[in-house]
Simulated assay, not measured.
Amino acid sequence: MLTLRDGPAATEARMGWMHYELAGMDLADVRFAVSPLNELVLSLRAWRDPGRYPVHLPWLRRVEEARPSLDGDMLLALTNESMWTPDYLTPRPGSPLTRIDDELAAVAAVDDAVVTHDLEAVHPGGLPAALRGPLPAVRRRVLDALSGYWDACFAPAWPRMRAVLQADVVHRGTVISAHGAGAMFADLSPRVSFADGVVSVRLGTLNAAFRRATAGVGLTLVPTLFTRGASAPISPAEPPVIMYGARGTGTLWQAERQVADDALVAVLGRARAGLLTALERPASSTELARRLDVTTSAVNQHLRVLRDVGLLTSARAGRSVLYLRSEVGDALVGPPR
């Protein structure tokens, strides 16, 4: 048996490190992206062990009624006690504007051998019942379970989640412009460091260590709402990715304070004035109810009145109806302060 003495090399081997070499320290190799599928799959960690993710307890309570209608056995089978998830279900996203339908289509096209390997890696002691059987049927069931989960629990909340993630991306770009790449990488996580053109990530997996260049493929940084540190693939064959905890996650489920001009409140009442002020951008009644922590039925009543008097417009987008201030509503609210 080979043993290592205590020291930097021994510590590195025990902890596991990943090193990405930027091509000539070229930050053009670094890009940010947001993945709705990554968030969907990683959120299953909070389902399995809510106590590890207390910030998401308000959301878990809100979606509790939807859980019995979902394929819970399959969804829970996509994680394990160590909170691992199959790598093929968390692909590297291509941009900050990635769509869930595009990502699910890409997952459907993953090679069977990769799917089998990734599922067995999450469950090395044997696959749970939901993942056994003919692979085509299992793959269809995985996609159906994730699609149902998205529609019931994620779609109503995704605009708010996406806003936090995209705000993080904007912030990181500002830090790079003002203070350089070193400051940006140092602020991602205590596990991430940057020196001499090399980005290093301390991995939670023991004895996993590698070094690779990002030339030709780039390094993608992906903020997420469902991690408390930073993570990266443990194989050099995987595309270079670092997932890190997004800023602002702690305030994600706090109710927004309805802000409206006193004169507008006097004319419309506080609830309707607050909704009209909030609808500078399109939103559904479900999203507004979650943002303002009120019932959807109450929001719908006010929205119908505001639309009937011409202060709002509405349009169907998929399964949702989106509301937006009309020109008359804009004039009544006045310019942004």
Rank of each mutant, 00 (worst) to 15 (best):
A266R: 06
R202M: 14
L268M: 03
G204T: 11
P8L: 03
G7W: 06
A66C: 12
V305Y: 14
G204P: 08
V309H: 01
L37P: 10
G274M: 06
R202P: 03
D308H: 07
Q258N: 06
M18H: 08
G173L: 12
V164I: 07
S35R: 09
A152I: 10
V333M: 07
A137M: 04
A186F: 03
A13V: 01
G245A: 15
A209I: 05
G248Y: 11
F185K: 00
P336A: 00
R272Y: 01
V164K: 04
H123F: 15
A209T: 13
A208N: 05
R172P: 02
A10G: 15
R162K: 10
A167K: 14
F226C: 09
T85G: 01
P86S: 09
V142K: 05
P336K: 08
A289V: 01
W59D: 05
P8R: 06
V222D: 09
A215F: 05
T220W: 10
E21K: 03
L275Y: 00
L188V: 00
S43F: 08
T85S: 15
D101H: 11
E280D: 12
P282I: 09
L104M: 14
L37F: 03
R291I: 06
R281V: 04
S95Q: 05
T286N: 08
A152S: 10
A246D: 01
D151R: 13
S326K: 03
D168Q: 06
Y88R: 14
F226W: 14
V328L: 08
P236M: 00
P134T: 01
A271R: 13
A23S: 13
I234A: 15
E287V: 01
R132M: 08
L22A: 02
G125C: 02
A113F: 04
A105S: 10
A10C: 09
Q258S: 06
A181E: 08
A186D: 15
T79H: 05
Y323N: 04
L292Y: 02
V305K: 15
D111H: 12
P50N: 02
S320P: 05
F226S: 09
I234R: 07
V309K: 07
L42Q: 14
Q301S: 12
A106H: 11
G216H: 04
V114A: 13
F226M: 09
R5E: 15
